[in-house]
Amino acid sequence: MKVDKETLQKVAHLARLNIRPEEEDQLLKDMGEILNWVEKLREVNTKGVEPLTHMTGEVNVLRADKAEATIDRQQALKNAPQQDGKFFIVPQVMKRND
């Protein structure tokens, strides 16, 4: 299993990370090593085995429908890199992605 540069760039975009050209080779190598390693899993016959998706033994953990005010707007905006006292502000969207 190999990862090529195109896949690398696609994955980087999905993860919203920049990969500099000089980083590509090392990252390809790292990922390649790990992926080879990871190919091993396909050796195991898992026919009829249910994937394990939840590690908690709890079931039906539901909350009563009550409203509670815990932080106000000032606190909500407190850690924001950019805000105007009412809204969070981010740079313009150049293209929509959803």
């Binding site: 909350r63 409203a67 707007r73």
Partner: peptide, 18 residues
């Protein structure tokens, strides 16, 4: 009355981020 995964109020308001 409250949101799906948290207890914040779930009705309309004019005041953003409250």
């Amino acid at each position: 009355v409250s949101k799906i995964f948290s207890a914040d109020a779930n009705h309309e308001t004019e005041e953003a981020n409250t």
